[in-house]
Design a protein around this nucleic acid. Structure first.
Lengths: 202, 202
DNA sequence: GCACTTATTGGACATTTGCGCAATAGCGTC
DNA sequence: GACGCTATTGCGCAAATGTCCAATAAGTGC
């Protein structure tokens, strides 16, 4: 098998195990079993377990960011862009992507490589929101005196609510995460209620 | 040694280890070393490792909640109560309490006992904020059409910002967590800027 | 066909983990 | 001082884990 393809296959298998069992409980043997290969093979391509986990997480979380980013760019104006942002972000929690983030944040303190990736991606998410807000303020569609702070607030609110949904499923529901976070952004940016509500696909 | 005291001592030692190393990396042997006793002793008092961890987390997080709750009750009006709430919450992150919460949320999916405790405490935090808001709305000091949602937003925003600070220390600083979360609550509740800023102890 | 590189295997190894258990020490009661 | 209960010890066991390594299979260029 082509080395590049093999490497991809290993990362894909790692990701599958991570999503099933969580980052902390992912072992080399499980990845090998998922791949249908031996454990030695994984170490032939990866120098350490930490690198393997970091790479798999980056692949998964990076793809989510890219997908949302692409969708946002299709928005005609900043309001639609922000709506698309919420559409994309609140849809992607159907899979276990958010549990991965929870694991990553908790493990960041103990895995430097993972921490670096997690930080970089979070800052990219914040930047994405910040750009939308600055566009909205320039166009007179939104009111905001501190876009950097506002972007961190919108992102953190979304993460904080998602966290409750994933950790304690019957405290906060998926619909509440969507509604409450959209309403929060409306309040933050001086928008009338309903502006960011998900539109029915016509 | 008195069995009750011994039990307390074990929990205290467990907590110390948990704060130093994180929940996932806490082992029976480490707790025994911290206590200056043998590993067998821990199992004489606790039926399992999960129970030990859950109990220690409940003790620590419950104490934080109680301390904040007590401080809030000393506020003369809802605005001061909310200010006290932020004072208490944003001060308690000096120690590593927030990393414990991160671990707890991540582990909640795999440790039922921990999940139950985490969920109960989070709901109590939300209730604490909700009561303040309802008092503020009644007294005409705050504007809020949905106190339940607003309380979840204020709590989740605070947790989300804290999360960034703990996981990636140079993305968001401790001061920014305090300022941004207070400002967020002001916007949420229709308060003029600076209303919730920490007062200098005169 | 033959050397040479590389992918792949399967297991060994040292370490760490939660937990159990037989032995011991300490202390209160008669 | 003897007895009995329980706190406490210290070790051992089985399972799991990351890492490494010698042996093998599979190509690949000559």
């Amino acid at each position: 098998m082509n080395p590049d393809d093999r490497r991809e296959a290993i990362i894909a298998a790692t990701l599958a195990v991570m999503q099933r069992q969580g980052i902390a409980a992912t072992t080399v043997r499980d990845v090998a079993a998922e791949l249908g290969a031996s454990s030695g093979l994984i170490h032939h391509y990866m120098t350490s377990m930490d690198e393997l986990i970091a790479e798999a997480f980056e692949r998964s979380a990076g793809a989510d960011l890219l997908a949302t980013s692409n969708l946002v760019q299709q928005g005609q104006d900043p309001l639609e862009q922000l709506r698309f942002f919420f559409d994309s972000y609140t849809r992607s929690d159907g899979d276990s992507g958010m549990q991965l983030w929870l694991d990553a944040w908790a493990e960041a303190a103990r895995r430097p490589e993972l921490r670096q990736i997690s930080q970089r991606l979070n800052e990219a998410w914040q930047q994405l929101i910040c750009d939308i807000i600055e566009g909205g303020v320039r166009g007179g569609l939104m009111t905001c005196t501190d876009p950097v702070a506002a972007a961190w607030r919108i992102l953190s609110l979304l993460d904080g609510l998602h966290l409750q949904e994933v950790a304690h499923s019957d405290s906060v529901t998926s619909a509440q995460v969507s509604n409450w976070s959209r309403r929060g952004a409306e309040i933050e940016l001086g928008l009338p209620p309903g502006t960011l509500t998900e539109r029915e696909p016509s």
